[in-house]
Structures are given as C-alpha cells and as structure tokens.
C-alpha cells in the first residue's frame, strides 16, 4: 500500500519503520529541521519530503494523489484535522488516520473532518491499563467497532465457578455471547447443553462491563 505519513516525530517515524518493514510504500513529510535530521539517519532519503505540512505542492511531491492511506501524526490537532479533510476531499485518499494529541479535542476526530481512524494515545493507554488491572488472565483477541465490543479469550482454571456447569444454566452477563470453546485442540461449538471443563479456552464476544462479570465466572476465586 502507498502510505503518506505527515509528521515525522517519534510516532510518525516509528509508524514509517514498521510499515517499511512490511514492504509498504511509505513517504514521510515534515517541516522541522531537527526532526528531519533525525529521520534522515533512520529512513531512506528518497522517502523523506521537506516542506510545510499543509502545502499542496509538498503533499503532492510525497505522492498524496496516489496514496491509499494518509496518516496525520503531527503534534498539532488542528493540522491533523485539516490534513484528513484535505486528503479525502481534494485527493480522494481512501483511508485517513489521525493522531489525537489532546484528548479534549477527540470530539472533532470523526466524519466532520473525514477522520476514519483516530489514534488517541492517551485514551488507548488509559483503557489498556484499566483492562490489564481488571481482567487478569483474559486476553483481548480483537476489538470491534472502535473497541466497544471485543472478542476475548479466557482459559478456565480448576475451581472456577463455571466448571461442570452447562451454558444454559450459567447466568451470563447481559451483553455477552460465548462464541467457541477450544478443548484439547478441537473447537467445540457451544450449545445450551455444553458443559465447561477445566482447561477449556472460552472465546466470547462482549462489551467491557460484561467482560468484567465474565472474568468472575471463569476465574479461580482462590487466586485473588
């Protein structure tokens, strides 16, 4: 994919390195001398474009007209917003990603400025920390719809409340569905009669609140 990254600071440069390693066609734009000096040491010179971030000619030099993705990673939220709007409206870029620097500006990062994906570092960190604190051994496999619903996995230890209980007899949290059980290398499709065993790996689709209730069913209460 052709990716234009605007803003080559720590976030932008890290993203560029990751994408280059995956063989994507990456171009980075920045206007700060110090930053440019640093990324010239880290990235191939022909991928770095120097110039004002909102200047159409500079962006066109970086190939925004053929870009599949534009990632706005500058430290100014208003610049990131204008970049997303510009990328979609003027150049028809299919996917726009913007970094949110100040969480208080997050309300603007949506269709209003054609932001497809907002990367709100502060809130991602906060919710990850919160999940780590509350969910113990539960692993999040996939986040759906910007992280409101998740597919989670949990291995049932001996002593958990759910062991020996059939799904139909288990009072499951409201916004939660058991989607699969992995048992001795096989997939068991969950039915009402299916009884949980020690060592089962349970996959469930759930929202954050139900996830916490689910943990209570599938964890060994003695462990705390």
């Amino acid at each position: 994919m052709y990716v234009v990254i605007v803003g080559g600071g720590r976030t932008g440069a890290q993203l560029a390195r990751t994408l280059i390693a995956q063989d994507h066609d990456v171009h980075v734009v920045d206007d700060r001398k110090q930053v440019l000096t640093r990324i010239h040491r880290e990235l191939p010179t022909e991928l770095i474009h120097e110039g004002e971030l909102l200047n159409a000619q500079v962006l066109e030099q970086a190939g925004i007209e053929q870009a599949d993705v534009m990632a706005a990673c500058t430290t100014h939220d208003e610049v990131n917003l204008v970049l997303c709007y510009l990328a979609r409206k003027r150049y028809g870029v299919r996917r726009t990603i913007a970094r949110v620097n100040n969480p208080r500006n997050a309300w603007l990062f949506n269709d209003l400025f054609h932001v497809d994906v907002e990367l709100n570092q502060a809130s991602i960190m906060a919710s990850m920390i919160q999940e780590e604190m509350s969910l113990g051994d539960m692993v999040t496999l996939l986040k759906l719809r910007r992280g409101h619903y998740s597919l989670v996995e949990e291995k049932i230890p001996a002593g958990a409340k759910a062991v020996g209980v059939a799904i139909k007899d288990l009072v499951l949290p409201r916004n939660c569905v058991i989607t699969a059980i992995l048992r001795s290398g096989d997939v068991v499709v969950p039915r009402g009669e299916t009884v949980f065993e020690v060592g089962d790996e349970v996959l469930a689709l759930t929202d954050p609140k139900s996830a916490r209730e689910l943990v209570a069913l599938f964890e060994d209460p003695e462990m705390d």
Binding site: L54, V79, L81, L108, F113
Partner: peptide, 14 residues
C-alpha cells in the same frame, strides 16, 4: 493560525 481558523469555522458551520 490558519489551521485553527479552519477547524473552528468548519465545526461552527457544520
């Protein structure tokens, strides 16, 4: 700041 003016004006209008 032109970027700031654009963002505030666009949000106000739309």
């Amino acid at each position: 700041s032109d970027a700031l003016n654009l963002v505030v004006a666009h949000a106000a209008a739309q």
